[in-house]
């Protein structure tokens, strides 16, 4: 469904991504794990068009995204839950969710998806008319995920959904990610919390200073000596 080919991304003179390739099949949860500064967020931002690659290509269902304006990509079926949630703090929960469906015009279907999001996140329903900035970190994460779902994406990119959350909430968030996936959305997950990410992923890639160094199924990588040492704390 999503294919990244020899992607190179530069910030000025510095190569942040040094030619990475990977793919995500339909229905999968795939995770990119790696340390801080390895290039995970850069990779996601390039896929969703916020950054332009120096070379290489991103294909969504065989269609190249590299030449398409960032704001057009979401209507092709790719939504991103950005790092740090980035909800619109000055707008209500409901307004945030409706902005998620900005590129759609099918009113009735949007209503259905709204119901679905409220079913997945009952907390958001309770806080519907509250300003997003007044939500707790966990609720904001739920809002960011719900907002992305409102685009009815075929594939959802999630950037560090567990960041800054309590262990209990992290479990909750990962359970919801699995649910979203079961409902038919393909997931590309970027995480520092390698243990949790590998436990729900079908396949995984390890990214180190802009290169992919390992790949395999979630279980394989969780069992691998290198990964255990570097990312799972022995």
């Amino acid at each position: 469904m999503l294919e990244v080919k020899d992607l190179v991304v530069k910030y000025g003179m510095i190569e942040a991504i040094k030619g990475i390739s990977f793919h995500v099949n339909e229905g999968e949860i795939v995770t990119l794990i790696g340390a801080n500064g390895a290039g995970k967020t850069t990779t996601l931002q390039t896929i969703s068009g916020l950054l332009k690659p120096a070379s290489g290509e991103v294909l969504l269902e065989g269609k190249s995204l590299t030449k398409i304006n960032a704001n057009k990509i979401v209507s092709l079926g790719l939504a991103q839950v950005p790092e740090g949630r980035r909800v619109f703090a000055q707008q209500t929960v409901l307004e945030n969710l409706k902005l998620g469906a900005y590129s759609r015009n099918d009113k009735e279907e949007i209503e259905k998806d709204l119901e679905n999001v409220f079913e997945l996140f009952p907390r958001l329903k309770e806080r519907e008319s509250q300003l997003a900035g007044t939500l707790s970190g966990g609720e904001q994460q739920m809002l960011a995920m719900g907002r992305a779902l409102m685009a009815r994406p075929k594939i959802m990119l999630m950037d560090e959904p567990s960041m800054g959350l309590s262990p209990l909430l992290v479990k909750e968030i990962f359970r919801i990610i699995e649910n979203i996936n079961k409902q038919g959305t393909t997931v590309l997950l970027v995480e520092q919390n390698a243990k949790m990410a590998l436990s729900i992923a079908n396949r995984a890639y390890v990214i180190e200073t802009g290169k992919i160094t390992l790949e395999g199924t979630g279980a394989e990588l969780a069992a691998s000596e290198e990964v255990r040492k570097a990312y799972l704390g022995g």
Binding site: S48, G49, L50, A70, N71, K72, V74, S75, A79, Q80, P82, R86, V87, F88, L99, G100, Y102, S103, R147, A151
Partner: peptide, 8 residues
């Protein structure tokens, strides 16, 4: 940036 991700 987030607005762009919404398709705006």
């Amino acid at each position: 940036g987030a607005a762009t991700l919404m398709g705006i």
